[in-house]
């Protein structure tokens, strides 16, 4: 399946920006099921775009304007070819006790250490009993599928009620949130049961009415022994397949925000995003719109600093 992804962002600042450095983690990755055929990234200031690999090994675009400005627009266009595949086909059914044995082995735990530990946004509250229990009788995969469905059925999709750093106890209490929250919850529960699970950031083709919010979609990938990494989309109760175009993965959202940056200016800003995913088959394109009021939701990590305050008064402690 051929997809065109059109990403647009506009940043408007109240005061002139003297210096800035952005990193965009929005490039679809090349993997077994998807091929990036074309990538174009431009900005309204004509600043040369640098391409670089971030600390976790994903391709990024970087933009560092050298002139003062108040408005900047970014635009990216990607063409991606995605295999149509049935995620169930790759599954390897076998006696699940072997798998459970493996999960308990130290070798396995050390190898997958990164995707087994909890982070501030994937930490389950200690006080209450786990709201969902794995069934020892059925396979790991079936359990994950049930977890996926349980989250979909128990929690209501509701935008603008949570923040990018909302913790899980709040989600569990109010039973609503957006894809990032559901993915964090999925990661937490799967990891709690010893299954390495990672947070995935990417694009969702909403052609047939799937739920998605904000500029990028989020889902999870769990390591199923004997099979490998399998994608679960708890927001839509789906296995990730041809409609899920992956960009990056990490322990949680904080490892893969689509835009990160350091901006030196004194005033506030408004940011607008628009992402459009179209396939060759679509008769009518659908967009995911957001506006400045939803900035938090969309997780921009842009920082604002007083230019005058560059002298750090309290550096880190010395040893």
């Amino acid at each position: 399946m051929d997809y065109t992804i059109h990403y647009k962002a506009q940043n408007i600042y109240k005061q002139p920006v003297r210096s800035a450095y952005w990193q965009f983690l929005i490039i679809p990755e090349n993997n077994d099921s998807q091929t990036l055929e074309k990538a174009v990234f431009t900005n309204s200031l004509g600043v040369p775009v640098q391409q670089s690999v971030n600390g976790y090994g994903f391709e990024t675009f970087r933009v560092a304007p050298k002139t003062t400005f108040k408005t900047i627009n970014f635009e990216a266009k990607f063409r991606v070819f995605k295999e149509i595949f049935n995620p169930f086909e790759q599954l390897n059914y076998r006696d699940s006790s072997i798998d459970r044995e493996l999960l308990r082995s130290l070798q396995f735990k050390v190898t997958h250490e990164r995707f087994l530990k909890s982070t501030p946004t994937t930490e389950l509250p200690l006080v209450r009993a786990l709201p969902f229990k794995f069934d020892e009788e059925s396979s790991l995969f079936d359990n994950l599928k049930t977890l996926n469905a349980w989250i979909f059925n128990t929690f209501k999709f509701k935008s603008q009620v949570t923040q990018i750093n909302t913790n899980l106890s709040e989600i569990l209490e109010h039973k609503h949130g957006v894809c990032q929250d559901f993915t964090h919850l999925f990661c937490a529960m799967a990891r709690k049961n010893g299954i390495p699970t990672r947070y995935v950031s990417g694009y969702l083709h909403q052609g047939i009415g799937y739920l998605g919010d904000s500029q990028m979609h989020a889902w999870a990938e769990s390591f199923v022994p004997g099979t490998g990494w399998v994608g679960f989309d708890p927001t839509n109760n789906l296995l990730a397949a041809e409609n899920h175009i992956k960009v990056a993965h990490g322990k949680d959202y904080a490892d893969c925000p689509p835009i990160k940056g350091v901006v030196y200016t004194t005033g506030g800003n408004t940011t607008t995003y628009k992402v459009l995913v179209t396939s060759a088959k679509d008769t009518m394109s659908q967009g995911q719109n957001s506006d400045g009021s939803m900035q938090q939701q969309m997780g921009t990590m842009t920082q604002h600093m007083e230019f005058q305050d560059l002298f750090p008064k309290n550096g880190p402690k010395d040893q």
Partner: peptide, 9 residues
């Protein structure tokens, strides 16, 4: 992300 001591990139 809010460190102004370091160097982006």
């Amino acid at each position: 992300p809010d460190s102004s001591l370091g160097v982006p990139g």
